[in-house]
């Protein structure tokens, strides 16, 4: 559905080098630290940043050649970009109506009422949470096939985040061909909603796997200095030095459980996994 093929974008002190694939019916997550390259990747997907090499294909068509009619199929939330904040919500509705053939004004108004977003207020007068919800409602208010969401839950409390995640699940349920690519600093959101996850570090995809595999097959091996030397490292992805010895990230938890029954092996969440990747050394 959406493919980022060997895309390279070079900046003065940073190089982005990514390949990703978004499949129909799937929610794909992109996680990484600040400055890892998430937003740039999203902007390349949307044709906002021109890559030095590589290409972005949507249904086999290069994003550069994508026509306006094709853009009807894309809904997006950008972390640093939206309509001028002096525009009122009701004015935004009329702009969207004039821009998208498939704009659903009833849905827009209904969702604004549901989230208590006043139609008469300027965007600048809304609270951070309301703004975030308005961005998501805007992305969902036309008949899109792909949602590209950069930090859509940023600045929201736990209740509001859950509401947004429910919106996204409902969006997916309407059509099996739909798909979402989403980034978030809140790993638990990504874990809850995504089918597969890409982890990006310093502009490169360092891990890509199904969410279930990441959460149940990946683990932290905690071992002392002496044991580390003799450790079978064929399934160790990254190592982080700790006060007690080493914390090793593996994607084959069962292998170590079976072969090293005395070893301390801990299940981990996405945050812990990323900490080893970022603070440690990749093998």
């Amino acid at each position: 559905m959406l493919e980022v093929k060997n895309v390279v974008k070079k900046y003065k002190n940073f190089t982005l080098n990514v390949s990703m694939e978004l499949k129909p019916g799937m929610i794909t997550g992109l996680v990484g630290a600040n400055g890892a390259g998430k937003s740039t990747t999203f902007k390349i997907m949307l044709g906002l940043v021109n890559p030095d090499s590589g290409e972005v294909l949507i249904n086999g068509e290069n994003i550069k050649a994508y026509k306006n009619s094709g853009k009807e199929d894309i809904g997006c939330v950008l972390a640093d970009s939206f309509f001028p904040d002096i525009i009122k919500v009701k004015e935004l509705k009329s702009i969207l109506k004039a821009s998208y053939k498939s704009f659903d004004g009833e849905y827009f108004v209904k969702k604004c009422e549901e989230y208590e977003i006043p139609m008469d207020k300027k965007i600048s007068e809304l609270s951070g949470g309301m703004k975030a919800k308005l961005r998501v409602v805007t992305a969902l208010s036309h008949d899109s096939k792909i949602l590209i969401l950069d930090e859509p839950t940023s600045g929201l409390d736990v209740v509001s985040r859950e509401e947004i995640l429910t919106e996204l699940r409902e969006y997916m349920e309407k059509d099996e061909e739909r798909s979402i690519v989403i980034s978030s600093h809140i790993s638990s959101d990504i874990e809850k909603i995504c089918d597969d996850i890409y982890v990006i570090n310093n502009g490169e995809i360092v891990i890509h796997d199904d969410t279930d595999t990441l959460l149940f097959e990946y683990a932290a091996l905690k071992i002392g200095d002496e044991d580390y030397e003799s450790l079978d490292k064929q399934y160790v992805i990254a190592v982080r030095k700790e006060s007690y010895g080493y914390e090793c990230l593996t994607d084959k938890k069962d292998y170590y459980l079976e072969n090293f029954p005395d070893m301390v092996i801990e299940k981990m969440n996405l945050d812990e996994l990323m900490l080893i990747l970022y603070k440690g050394e990749k093998l």
Partner: peptide
């Protein structure tokens, strides 16, 4: 420019 709106507009059916 202030709200980086051009980027958002270009994701819409606007070339």
């Amino acid at each position: 420019e202030r709200n980086n709106t051009v980027a958002y507009l270009l994701t819409m059916p606007v070339s």
